[in-house]
Simulated scan of single mutants.
Amino acid sequence: MKRAEQVTFGGGGLDRAAHLREDPKALAAAWADPQAEVMLIWQGKPLSRRSGRGSSPDQLAMIPTDHPLAQARQSQAIFLGLTPKGAPQFACDMSDWQPDALDQAMLASFADASEQHHPDLPVGDVFTELRRMMAFLTPLEAELAATAKAVLAWHHSHQFCARCGAASAVAQAGWQRNCPDCNASHFPRTDPVVIMLITHGDSVLMGRSPGWPEGMYSLLAGFVEPGETLEAAVRREVFEEAGVRVGAVSYLSSQPWPFPMSLMFGCAGLALERELTIDTTEIEDALWVSRADMMMVFASEHPRISAARKGSIAHFLLQNWLADRLD
């Protein structure tokens, strides 16, 4: 697919500069670089501000490395890499801060619209759910946010050695954890997920999960199992969820999906049948949507169905399917 890397979180041009991760002197020099910037993340929400690209916060709000909030967390900072202009980029976790009047129910909701402001940061700089602003970020901002959010999520869930259970320590500028007891090394994980544009004639198969906003439908998706090809995962997941057998499968595009740390493999598949047998333990509903109806969905004119969230690979694939740009 020629436009594959135009998907959100893809193609930002970040130089990961992995050779610097094990060089303390080089990392110290990068931190001291006048161009260096730090992304603060609180409970998975990047610091952001309004720039006018969208109605909500829609731009990363980076801080300099000499800011007190960054300096206090330097020892645990994640080195993200270098921008195309050579500016070192870091990420620091702010989850130890506790805002006043925190609404835990809102934080746990599918569409967290809450914003948190730290008193030591400029007015207007707030921690914002990444899904709310991902469609408005520049490619570089999106790649930085996805990388930082996913790596920090891995650190939160992998603080102990999987071999012996001892507490592990951060190494390699945040890209490794080492066990002091059994000397095992652990690395950030990425969970492979297939997401499928399944078509039959001029219709596409859509589904919805429980808890999604009313009317929201998206492409079917599921985790790839050990020992399974992407093609086999597509066929298995579609049959398990919707009872539809799939023939030819092809790869379209991929998207890092930091919720919490997945890699979405966008695939196209040709259905061999239209009859649906929905497994309600997997999904809440599934249906075939014609191209004409999908055009109404994207125009927000459909009486029943609302589009997949902008910025998601589902929205990206459906948009290109409607425009006949899947080649």
Rank of each mutant, 00 (worst) to 15 (best):
G269F: 04
A242D: 03
M264V: 12
P260R: 09
R245A: 14
G243R: 00
M261I: 12
A268P: 01
Q255K: 00
Y251P: 01
V244S: 01
V249Y: 05
C267K: 04
A248C: 08
M264P: 02
G266Q: 04
Y251H: 13
A271S: 05
A271K: 02
P256Y: 07
S253R: 09
L270V: 13
A271E: 02
M264Q: 09
Q255H: 00
G269C: 06
G266R: 02
G266S: 04
L270F: 01
P260Y: 13
Y251V: 11
V246M: 01
L252E: 09
V246H: 01
R245H: 14
A271C: 04
R245S: 14
M264K: 07
P258Q: 02
G266I: 07
W257L: 09
G247W: 04
S253M: 07
G269D: 01
G269Y: 07
S250F: 10
S250G: 14
W257P: 02
L270K: 12
C267A: 15
A271Q: 01
R245E: 11
F259R: 07
P256M: 13
M264F: 13
P260T: 15
W257T: 05
M261L: 14
V244G: 05
F259L: 14
V246R: 01
A268Q: 15
P258S: 09
V249G: 00
Q255C: 02
C267F: 08
L270W: 02
V244T: 05
G243W: 05
S253F: 00
Y251L: 13
S253E: 04
P258K: 06
A248V: 12
A248Y: 08
F265C: 12
F259E: 12
V246W: 01
A242E: 09
G243T: 08
G243V: 05
A242Q: 10
F259V: 11
S253P: 04
M264A: 10
G266Y: 04
G243K: 06
G247F: 11
A242W: 09
Y251D: 04
R245Q: 11
P258L: 05
G247M: 09
V244K: 03
W257V: 01
P258F: 14
S250D: 13
P256S: 08
A271V: 10
A268C: 06
P260D: 14
P256Q: 07
P260V: 15
Y251S: 11
L263N: 10
G243Q: 05
A268I: 08
V244N: 03
Y251E: 12
A268V: 10
M264G: 05
V244Y: 02
V244L: 06
S250M: 06
F259C: 00
S250W: 15
V246Q: 02
G266D: 00
V249P: 02
M264C: 06
F265V: 00
V244M: 04
Q255E: 04
L263W: 10
A242K: 03
W257A: 13
P260L: 11
P258M: 13
V244W: 09
S254H: 13
G266W: 00
A271R: 02
P258I: 07
L252D: 01
L263V: 15
G243A: 01
G269S: 04
P260K: 13
G266M: 00
A242I: 06
Q255A: 06
L270Y: 03
M261N: 15
G247H: 04
A271N: 03
